[in-house]
Amino acid sequence: MGRFHRHDDTTHTHADGTVHEHADGMAHDHGDHSGYDTGAQRVEILEAIFTENDVRADLNRNAFDAAGVPAVNLMSSPGSGKTSILSATLDALRPSLRIGVIEGDIATDLDAARLEDKGAQVSLINTANGFGGECHLDAPMVNRALQGLDLSTLDLVFIENVGNLVCPAEFDVGEHARVMVYSVTEGEDKPLKYPLMFSRVHVVLLNKIDLLPHLDVELQSFLDTIAQTNPRAHVIPVSARTGEGLEQWYSWIDTAMIRAG
C-alpha cells in the first residue's frame, strides 16, 4: 500500500494577471478586480510568475533525474477518463514498476484515495481557495508535493494535472513527457479549439473509443484534427472500460523510461 500525503496549495495567476497569496508566504499582487490591467505591471507580474515557475521546474526535473525516475505529466479536460486510465495503468504495471502519483485536484481526495488503493505512493494537491479553485498545477506546487514521495524507492511518477484544456499546458512542472487524455465524447474539433494543449503533448490517448458506434463521427476525424495541430504527437486510441489499446500505451511507457534513463 502506498503513502498518502495531502498538500494545500493556492498558487495561481488569473487570465487578467491578478495573483493571489499562497501557502509559501510569498507576497502576490491581487490586482484590480474591476477590470483588466493590460499595462507594464501586468506583464512584469506574469514574467515573474513564469520565471519562478521555470526555476522550480528545473529543480523538480533535477530531483527526478538524480533519482533516475521519469515523470509524466498527465493532462485532460474533466470527465475524459484520465483517472480511469491511470488506475488501469497502475494495475497493469505495479507488478514490475514502483509508481508514485502527484494527484492534482480542485477539491476532495476521491481520486487520490482511489489510486492509493492501487498500491502507489500518492501525494495530493488540492488547489481550492476562496476564489473557487485553481485550474492547473504549476512547478512550485509539484515541488512541495515531492516532499510526499520517496523518489529513491520509485521507478516512475505520474503527475495527474487538474482537469482543464487551457491552463495546464502553460506550465512546465519538471516533467519528462506530456500526455493528454482526449475522449471521443468531447467532439473531434477540440484540437482546433484548444491548440496550445494539443501542440505541446507527446502522446494523445484517444479514450472511450468503445462509444464510437454510438456517435455520429468516425475515428479518422479525430486523427485528422489532432494531426492538424500536432503531427508529431503519438496518438493511441484506447478504451479504459474495455482495455482496448492500453497495451500500446504501456509499451510507450516502457520506451519513455528507457529514453529517460
Rank of each mutant, 00 (worst) to 15 (best):
R3A: 07
R3Y: 10
R6S: 11
H12A: 14
T18Q: 14
H22C: 14
H33T: 14
S34V: 07
A40Y: 09
A40G: 06
Q41T: 14
I45G: 08
L46P: 02
E47T: 11
F50W: 12
T51S: 15
E52Q: 15
E52H: 12
V55Q: 15
D58V: 14
N60G: 03
D65Y: 04
A67D: 05
S76T: 02
K82V: 09
T83K: 06
S87W: 10
A88L: 11
T89Y: 06
L90W: 09
A92Q: 11
G100V: 07
D111N: 09
D111Q: 10
R114G: 10
A120Y: 00
Q121W: 10
S123C: 06
S123I: 05
G132E: 06
E134S: 14
A145S: 09
L146Q: 03
T153Y: 00
L154T: 00
D155Q: 01
I159K: 00
N161W: 03
V173S: 02
E175T: 07
H176R: 08
D189I: 12
P195E: 04
M197T: 12
R200P: 01
H202N: 15
L205I: 11
N207V: 00
V217C: 08
E218C: 12
Q220K: 13
I226M: 03
A227E: 14
S239V: 02
R241G: 03
E247K: 12
T255C: 02
R259W: 10
A260N: 12
G261R: 15
